[in-house]
Design a protein around this nucleic acid. Structure first.
Length: 487
RNA sequence: GGCCGGAUGGUGAAGUGGUUCAACACAGCGGUUUGCAAAACCGUCAUUUCGCGGGUUCGAAUCCCGCUCCGGCCUCCA
């Protein structure tokens, strides 16, 4: 792979500064992004996180080569929330998790998010064994202790920089602000690595015997705590120090701080779990964070009932990934309109020349430089979109002028940009919304209107046009005849 | 209480010291076109203005200080 002639800069949460990114090894670039706990359908907030990191994944692929980038995104498929939900609906937890993993995969595919190179699950025996071994090692090194009820806790006092990622001094925190303190902890900051059944309301489900998994220093049946899995899966999939670790802003503390403590306790002094930490901002509703617990969420599937997947993607990419995005129908409708315009040009170009669009680009192109620079500048997708619009406008102009050379030129560049952003990728029909053929009744209306127009019966013609519009079919009378499209 | 982030036209939003820096998009408005529309095109759309008040500077939306408002986290969370 050629050495990238662009420097990728990323805002590193560790330093709160934009830093030049260089991978530890240019032919093995590693990215770990915290995935979901599959106990319900994913919502728009999840969509944002994974669209953002999809753009990062694609950008890294362009810079270092498709095969050089390893992107792991996990599923926390062993968890109290899964067990609780499973009991509510009378299902096996594992079955329930499977259902929502499949649902999540569908959502990601709809949103044009590329599949990660690895999607580890906690329930994988390899992961469970790794977790148990990691916990054993932490106990051995005094970084963890077993409580009277059998839990294993991380001893945060052994890790003085705990909380540094979130820039917190722990003695200044309000303990128990949200979750009540646990008497068995040596320090209120300590967190659970292994959750023994003794304190679980759901004793028998998703419970594992540490001994069976090879544990030597703890024994109470139970399940892994939330944070430990990511440490282990990142290590198993990507190695001990990864290039970039990402996730939502809300994971900074405690989740990512706990991961750092768990992982770095077993690494050489000064060796980090991750060199770069990236966090995306929230989706808000009326200014308040969209979340499961507040109940103010819209699932991706529900949003897809009203808006095309690419409009959702476009809407998300209009804002820089660290800023909040407010979910409003008006904003989605505006994105849909903007996308429809892009597709109108795109579609017209395909009618002229049905060859597939360019997706890859070898070498340099001065017209693509602003686009590439925008994405390399801390993933400035808003600026990158402006370049896409610009290419679209030039292509539309070339189509009007009949300049075939420029049509090819701009179509290639537009195609490349759209592909990088994961937009304009609907196969066959080059429109955002599916254009199902007219029904017999609809066709009859259209034919009747044609007849009325031929006899210059304008009132009848307009009445039929309104009737079609009411059914979601928009009529356009052009010089070469009448066309229709579904709104 | 501690820590973190945000505030840019009617709307979303880019821009973090200086030659179109207020990009781009959506909406609106005027026009061309059309039987009328739609679509498209042309034009217009923050002109001492970037939450407020100071300061630094030859020069600030951009840096510094103070303030207001909004949001997030402080062991469920993307």
């Amino acid at each position: 792979m050629p050495k990238p002639n662009l420097t990728l800069t990323l805002t590193n949460t560790l330093t709160r500064a934009k830093e030049a990114f260089t991978p530890h090894s240019a032919n093995n670039v590693t990215l770990y992004v915290c995935g979901i706990t599959p106990y319900d359908h994913a919502h728009i907030g999840h969509a944002r996180a994974y669209v953002v990191f999809d753009i990062l994944f694609r950008t890294l692929q362009r810079l270092y080569g498709d095969n050089a980038v390893k992107y792991a995104r996990n599923f926390t498929d062993i968890d109290d929330k899964i067990i609780t939900r499973a009991q509510e609906v009378g299902e096996q937890p594992t079955q329930l998790a499977q259902t929502f993993i499949a649902s999540f995969h569908k959502d990601m595919a709809a949103l044009n998010c590329l599949p990660p190179t690895a999607e580890p699950k906690v329930s994988d025996p390899k992961v469970l064994k790794g977790i148990v071994a990691h916990i054993d090692a932490l106990i051995e090194k005094q970084f963890a202790y077993v409580t009277a009820s059998g839990d294993v806790m991380y001893r945060t006092q052994k890790f003085p920089s705990f909380g540094a990622l979130a820039h917190r001094k722990l003695d200044e925190q309000q303990h128990g602000a949200r979750v009540k303190a646990d008497d068995e902890k040596e320090s209120p900051n300590d967190f659970v690595l292994w959750k023994a059944n003794a304190k679980s309301a759901t004793k028998l489900e998703q419970a594992f015997s540490p001994k069976d998994l090879g544990a030597k220093l703890f024994s109470a049946p139970g399940r892994p705590g939330w944070h430990i899995e990511c440490s282990v899966m990142a290590k198993q999939e990507l190695g001990t120090t990864i290039d970039i670790h990402g996730g939502g802003e809300d994971l900074q503390f405690p989740h990512h701080c706990c991961e750092i403590a768990q992982s770095e306790a077993l690494l050489k002094p000064g060796q980090p779990l991750a060199r770069f930490w990236l966090h995306n901002g929230f989706i808000t509703v009326g200014g308040t964070k969209m979340s499961k617990s507040l109940g103010n969420f819209t699932t991706i599937k529900d949003a897809l009932k009203s808006y095309s997947a690419e409009a959702i993607r476009l809407w998300l990419l209009q804002t820089h990934y660290r800023k909040p995005v407010d979910y409003t129908p008006a904003a989605l409708a505006a994105a849909e309109a903007s996308l429809a315009k892009l597709y109108a040009t795109w579609n017209a170009a395909f009618k002229k020349d049905p060859k597939p669009a360019v997706t890859a680009w070898k070498g340099t192109c001065s017209r693509l430089n602003p686009f590439r620079r925008a994405l390399a500048d801390d993933l400035n997708t808003a600026a990158a979109l402006a370049e896409l619009h610009s290419a679209s406008n030039f292509l539309a102009e070339a189509l009007r002028n009949g300049d075939e050379q420029k049509q090819r030129y701009w179509r290639q560049r537009m195609g490349y940009m759209a592909h990088h952003l994961g937009l304009l990728q609907n196969p066959q029909a080059h429109t955002a919304k599916p254009q199902t053929p007219l029904s017999a009744a609809e066709q009859a209306l259209l034919t009747a209107r044609e007849a009325a127009r031929a006899s210059k019966n304008w009132p009848e013609s307009d009445r039929l046009r309104d009737e079609l519009k009411a059914q979601g079919i928009l009529i356009e009378d052009g010089p070469t005849g009448t066309t229709w499209r579904r709104a």
